[in-house]
Design a protein around this nucleic acid. Structure first.
Lengths: 219, 219
DNA sequence: ACCTGAACACCGTTCAAGT
DNA sequence: ACCTGAACACCGTTCAAGT
């Protein structure tokens, strides 16, 4: 086998030995430091919030020197950006899973997807905050792409609703953005403490009902 | 006059001399440091973002030693909380102003208020982020109160819509939260860079249209 | 290619001391 | 009552040196 070429070409994100699990846990010095840092960062943000995250702490917890992370993230902001991006990937996966497990009924799919979104907001409030924080975002920001990819099950759902005559015609992305905003706003009201868990369920239900009614075809 | 008693009772937020403007600009050492810090913090957050805000910098810019802010804000978080609260006060004032200047038509008032909200989001994106950031918020958090107070013109608007038969019956706060979430979500999609300025107007318009349709009485 | 460890400038927080 | 300034522990970033 000529796995040499492959390893050199894409050596950052873990090598074959790691994937097969043949490398001991202390082999951070080769291959998977980037992933380990992100994983630990995510856990820390969940437990301590964004302010509890320090590069030096991270390096300590993962067992490397404080200068090591620099090889994988140019600075703290680069790590936060990567963390946000991986957050969108996870959110997208959970939305897609909820979408698929919900059967084929439009309303059921919509409610299941929204519930998955809000579950993410509840479990990883600080991460969701980071994902929607206002940094200098260019138009072709990878985060923009990741966010739209994550929400793509919702856009697909809009398309289904249109095919079935439940939703009005029009650009599915334009209509989907209204749904996106509504769900994200609901999540934000909860993570920021404006509403309690008890009100969240009611608000989420209302938001979806209003959206569906609002997007009804005008007959 | 016995203004001694009054001054002692409420000496933090500037004294009579300040209000009348009889105190020179270098009199920070007496009375208005807290307000000066908040004002400078708001400007810095607007120009540099939240990460550009440092207590020591603030103290420097205001012309006071780095230990001085502690007299008015126990720690950095306390200053951020106060900043968020003052942000809600400003947002509330701007919503109320837009509400009043919009005449008496329900739709006009609704669009004007939403536009004012989004104007705030555009001008002070980082501040809005801070206002909705996920810290440890109790149920009786002053921020919760400030947010609801800020949005109260919207709740009043819901009430008007119900009186005029444009909106369905029900708890105005419950219905208003759907509108709140929708507008805040729209703002978040913009401040986080998910949509561009060009799309913002379209999304805002759609969000309001869908809300009004969604909250229509079911005849 | 990846990691270490010293060095630097900066920060938040505390606290005795000043007025 | 309010502010100063030294002190402390910690942080992000840089960079020569190691393997």
């Amino acid at each position: 086998m000529d796995n040499n070429v492959d390893a050199d070409h894409n050596a950052v994100n873990g090598n074959i030995l790691d994937r097969v699990g043949l490398v001991s846990e202390k082999s951070y010095h080769h291959g998977n430091l980037r992933a380990a840092l992100l994983e630990q960062a995510k856990a820390t943000v969940r437990e301590q919030g964004l302010d509890g995250l320090s590069l030096r702490d991270l390096a300590r917890q993962v067992g490397v020197s404080h200068g090591a992370p620099r090889r994988h993230f140019q600075d703290r902001q680069a790590l936060l950006d990567a963390l946000a991006e991986s957050g969108f990937e996870q959110l997208g996966a959970e939305l897609a899973a909820a979408f698929e497990q919900a059967g084929s009924d439009f309303g059921t799919r919509l409610r299941a997807s929204a519930a998955a979104y809000l579950r993410f907001a509840i479990n990883d409030a600080a991460l969701l905050d980071l994902m929607f924080s206002s940094k200098g975002h260019d138009a072709d920001d990878p985060l923009h792409t990741a966010a739209m990819a994550a929400f793509s099950p919702m856009f697909e759902l809009i398309h289904q609703g249109q095919r079935e005559g439940i939703l009005e015609a029009g650009d599915p992305e334009r209509i989907g953005l209204v749904l996106f905003a509504s769900i994200q706003g609901t999540a934000a009201l909860f993570t920021s403490g404006m509403i309690e868990s008890a009100q969240l369920e009611q608000l989420a239900s209302d938001a979806i009902t209003y959206f569906v009614r609002g997007a009804l075809p005008i007959p």
